[in-house]
């Protein structure tokens, strides 16, 4: 499983072709014959697909900033585990949080309309004498809290629903 590289609206698969002490890159199934040699801090000579050019590179977390051919591009390196989770989130869409076990709601810490972030505790349930905090798993707004304080629920019942919030308009 290799990371995916997102650049300019495309997603490219970059696979290392190992050869003893060195390696080549295969991008989207085609060998790239790529190599990178440092010239000065931040400055490199890039060989790729038969061409040679000067590039500038900087990195922050999972984003690599590349300056080449007169423009700056941002390459996002998507970790496969993160991508798998993103795809699941996109698939599940509805933002529903299901009860992992039967129990009772003992505390409600959010209200409908609240803006929440992943990890914010929405409510606390009690099951088999143990209390569990139920956190929001996505960023958004609390759209529903179907089980009231003190009410009981079964395993798999919806405890909360979070809707992704629309992008905020930026100030002038």
């Amino acid at each position: 499983m290799e990371p995916l590289f997102e650049v300019g609206g495309r997603t490219l698969r970059v696979v290392p072709i190992l050869r003893g002490s060195g390696f080549d890159l295969e991008i989207d199934g085609r060998p790239a014959e790529a190599a990178l040699a440092p010239l000065a801090p931040g400055e490199f000579e890039l060989r790729c697909d038969g061409g040679v050019e000067r590039v500038f590179l900087a990195q922050e977390g999972d984003r690599v900033f590349v300056h080449l051919r007169g423009r700056a591009l941002e390459v996002t390196v998507v970790d496969p585990l993160e991508r798998a989770r993103q795809q699941t989130r996109a698939r599940l869409g509805a933002g529903e949080i299901f009860a992992p076990m039967p129990g009772v709601v003992v505390e409600v810490l959010a209200a409908i309309g609240d803006a929440v972030r992943p990890g914010d505790t929405l409510l606390v349930i009690e099951s088999m004498k143990l209390q569990t905090a139920i956190p929001a798993e996505r960023e958004g707004r609390v759209a529903a809290l179907p089980v009231a304080l003190g009410a009981s629920f079964r395993r798999g019942d919806v405890l909360a629903r979070i809707e992704s919030a629309p992008a905020e308009a930026l100030p002038a």
Partner: peptide
């Protein structure tokens, strides 16, 4: 959910095979 939240028979849950394999690699 039974085994990763209640019984402890399994350590991690994954929502897809891709996630499980990526997690396995980690």
């Amino acid at each position: 959910d039974v085994h990763t939240r209640v019984s402890g028979v399994a350590d991690y849950s994954a929502d897809s095979e891709e996630e499980a394999i990526a997690l396995g690699r980690e």
